[in-house]
């Protein structure tokens, strides 16, 4: 994949097409992309394809609770993956849960990355007071437990998806900031930056045009890991009782709810959402890994 794809001058090729053609070189990554596309479609159209609306309490009958996979409900719906402790169809729950989990993971991941990178780069390049201020903020943030942040937000703002995303962004931006600053400090001393300075390019242009692309590879690694991390963290918060509203479960909350049934032999309540979570995260990472290699300017010399 690091094949000398250096294009001969004159050959017509848009950057996008080149990206695609490089991307498809790895079959595993293509598989990941296909699975991810399917997952996204499922998440997007969950209301249309789910047998039941798992978020509508009037549709759930407590007498249908804890049914094993393949059972039929009182109203004749078949629960292909069984039901949870409230009588919620697991399959529908997983479809809707995917939606919530992906939204939480992706939004919080992107927001945290943007905030973290902006602040981290600024710190690395500006130096002085600005850097001090930002980096001490990072110290402060990193030492503040997620649980406490989530609990404070819960007490002040109440429960909800938006609040969880906010909590995750508050928690995660510092990781990005800290990492990108470390990388940027090294990049800053490289010849190409000095060259750019000599050319009289503006500061923002040097930061975002030259340093940023070269800092991307580790950021993408952390980014893909953190999207997964955000989804898992949301699960942990739900496990601790400070996550999403219990009537609108995400994958993580489904797993956390199923946790109490792990020893009881009712495996389906946390097993199936667990599998769904695993597949989602693996496909995100397969795509992420390949993207990183393709986008890395240095692997293309």
């Amino acid at each position: 994949m690091s094949a000398p794809s250096a294009t001969a001058p004159g050959k017509i090729e848009t950057p996008f097409r080149r990206l695609v053609s490089e991307f498809v070189e790895d079959r595993l990554a293509v598989l990941g992309a296909v699975v991810l596309a399917v997952i996204l479609l499922v998440a997007l159209f969950a209301p249309l394809i789910s047998p039941q609306n798992p978020y509508d309490l009037s549709k759930l009958d407590i007498l249908d609770s804890r049914l094993p996979p393949g059972s039929k409900s009182m109203d004749g719906i078949t629960f292909w993956l069984g039901t949870d402790g409230q009588g919620r169809d697991m399959l529908s729950g997983i479809f809707y849960g995917l939606r919530t989990s992906l939204a939480v993971g992706v939004f919080s991941g992107i927001l945290a990355m943007v905030v973290g990178m902006a602040l981290g780069l600024t710190a690395a390049y500006a130096g002085g007071r600005t850097e001090t201020l930002i980096m001490r903020l990072v110290d402060l943030q990193l030492s503040f437990p997620t649980i406490l942040i989530a609990l404070i937000l819960l007490a002040v703002l109440g429960q909800g998806v938006g609040k969880i995303i906010l909590a995750l962004v508050i928690v995660q931006w510092a990781y990005y900031a800290r990492t990108i600053r470390g990388t940027a400090l090294v990049e800053r001393r490289r010849e190409y930056v000095e060259a750019a300075i000599c050319l009289g390019l503006s500061k923002p242009r040097i930061i975002f045009g030259h340093i940023l692309p070269n800092c991307m590879p580790p950021m993408i690694v952390i980014g893909t890991v953190q999207v997964a991390g955000a989804i898992a963290l949301e699960a942990t918060l739900s496990f601790l009782g400070i996550g999403l509203p219990i009537t609108e479960p995400s994958l993580g909350l489904l797993i956390a709810n199923g946790f109490e049934y792990l020893l009881s032999g009712k495996y389906w309540i946390s097993f199936f959402p667990g599998i769904a979570l695993l597949i989602t995260i693996i496909s995100i990472n397969l795509v992420g890994d390949q993207l990183r290699d393709v986008l890395n300017p240095r692997l293309k010399r």
């Binding site: 509508d56 309490l57 009037s58 407590i62 409230q86 819960l154």
Partner: peptide
């Protein structure tokens, strides 16, 4: 959550908030 489900069935739209 179960009480809310039961109330929903008699026409009382119930939301649930469970907190530590």
């Amino acid at each position: 959550q179960t009480v809310a489900q039961m109330w929903s069935r008699v026409g009382v739209d119930a939301k649930v908030e469970a907190l530590p």
